[in-house]
């Protein structure tokens, strides 16, 4: 070849540079195409939900929507709190102390989605079956949850999850 050695090097450099830029460019183009599938700004604006618990009387349950999922808010009776606190941790498939699951022991707040395959357990309405431990019962595959929302029997691997929440006043909780 007539090309000098220096010329060949320069050509290599140009080729490497153009290829690199092409790869970087392709990655820059790919990102918006992927990121558009992430939650949009209007979805992200609904990340937190505020809820006034003052209307929830003792023994009453309310289901609210948070990030498109049901959240159970239960104002527990003395008896239910007592039951939840007196359980021997060795009896639990997913041992967790009730006090760790609530900020205010009266109010249990948890995501109402069965940890087995995502059905919504029954037990919010007075007439619902509440399972053998008087909490919640998932009709899909028969998981029983106690009055602290902990799994006691059935295929679900873990307790109903407690979403991050805090009291921003005496009666208002912010979930998320």
């Amino acid at each position: 070849m007539a090309e000098s050695h220096a010329g060949a090097n320069r050509r290599d450099f140009i080729q490497v540079a153009s290829t690199t830029m092409g790869v970087v460019g392709a990655a820059c183009v790919a990102w918006p195409l992927i990121d558009q599938m992430n939650p949009a700004a209007d979805t992200l604006a609904l990340l937190t939900t505020e809820f006034d618990i003052s209307g929830v009387e003792e023994g009453m349950s309310v289901t609210i929507v948070w990030r498109g999922k049901p959240v159970f808010v239960r104002h527990r009776t003395e008896k239910e709190v007592e039951e939840a606190r007196s359980v021997d941790l060795d009896d639990l498939p997913d041992p967790e102390v009730d006090a760790d699951r609530t900020t205010n022991p009266k109010f249990l707040v948890m995501v109402g989605v069965c940890t087995h395959l995502g059905c919504v357990p029954l037990g919010q309405k007075a007439t619902d079956p509440k399972g053998e431990w008087g909490g919640w019962f998932c009709p899909c595959h028969g998981s029983h949850y106690d009055t602290s929302g902990r799994i006691r029997k059935g295929p679900a691997p873990s307790n109903l999850s407690v979403p991050p929440h805090e009291y921003i006043s005496d009666t208002v909780i912010r979930i998320g």
């Binding site: 918006p32 195409l33 990121d35 558009q36 599938m37 992430n38 949009a40 700004a41 209007d42 979805t43």
Partner: peptide, 28 residues
């Protein structure tokens, strides 16, 4: 088409949602 809604009541606003809220929707 992942974000567009083909209905006379929603088409225009779904396009505006693409322009305003969807990540890089305006660019696409």
């Amino acid at each position: 088409s992942m974000h567009y809604t083909a209905h006379v009541d929603y088409a225009f606003q779904s396009v505006e949602r693409i322009m305003r809220d969807v990540n890089y929707g305006w660019m696409i």
